[in-house]
């Protein structure tokens, strides 16, 4: 009975003989291999490479000049690390759209709202500070298309 099955007319018919064979296995495997090769190709060049963790440098002249106790950004470091982008957007909105150019932090310290004049005054080492993490996580903020980073000036000053 197992070799027979009921056809559409109600009668029994022989099961068609289909050879148990995987057709074109070679080509399928080859195609799959090429497909997976393409999929993982972007990962291959970096496989096994150890990328150094970013280490933003804080040893600019402006920061070193400050006393150890005063070496404090506009907000606490953990906050800045996590939220500097949001803070900068808030500063931008405040300065450009509302004309509010003074930032008062929770300790009551006052800062001018300005990327080039406040942030980059201390962090005058863009390649050693900003770019370290930004390159590591492959983000390209477009601040520097317009805002001047003041790095060159400082580099020249340091060489004197």
């Amino acid at each position: 009975m197992e070799d027979k099955y009921r056809n559409e007319f109600g009668g029994f018919a022989e099961k068609p003989k289909v050879p148990k064979k995987f057709y074109d296995l070679k080509y399928i495997l080859l195609g799959l291999a090429i497909f997976f090769g393409l999929v993982i190709s972007p990962i291959l060049p970096n496989l096994g490479k150890i990328v150094a963790a970013p280490s933003p440098k804080l040893d600019t002249p402006a920061i070193l000049k400050l006393a150890e106790k005063e070496r404090q950004c506009v907000m606490p470091t953990p906050y800045m690390r996590a939220n500097h982008m949001q803070l900068l957007i808030d500063w931008r909105e405040a300065a450009v759209r509302n004309g509010n150019r003074e930032f008062i932090n929770p300790e009551g310290k006052k800062f001018t709202v300005s990327l080039s004049n406040t942030c980059m005054e201390c962090h005058s080492n863009k390649t050693q500070f900003c770019d370290q993490c930004h390159n590591f996580v492959a983000v390209t903020p477009n601040c520097w298309g317009c805002h001047l980073d003041k790095e060159q000036k400082v580099a020249q000053g340091g060489a004197k």
């Binding site: 907000m75 808030d90 500063w91 405040a94 509302n98 004309g99 509010n100 150019r101 003074e102 930032f103 008062i104 932090n105 929770p106 300790e107 009551g108 001018t112 709202v113």
Partner: peptide, 14 residues
């Protein structure tokens, strides 16, 4: 006291 949120204001000399 002192633990107030940060504020963005116009400069007094503006």
């Amino acid at each position: 006291p002192g633990q107030v949120a940060a504020a963005l204001e116009a400069k007094p000399e503006a």
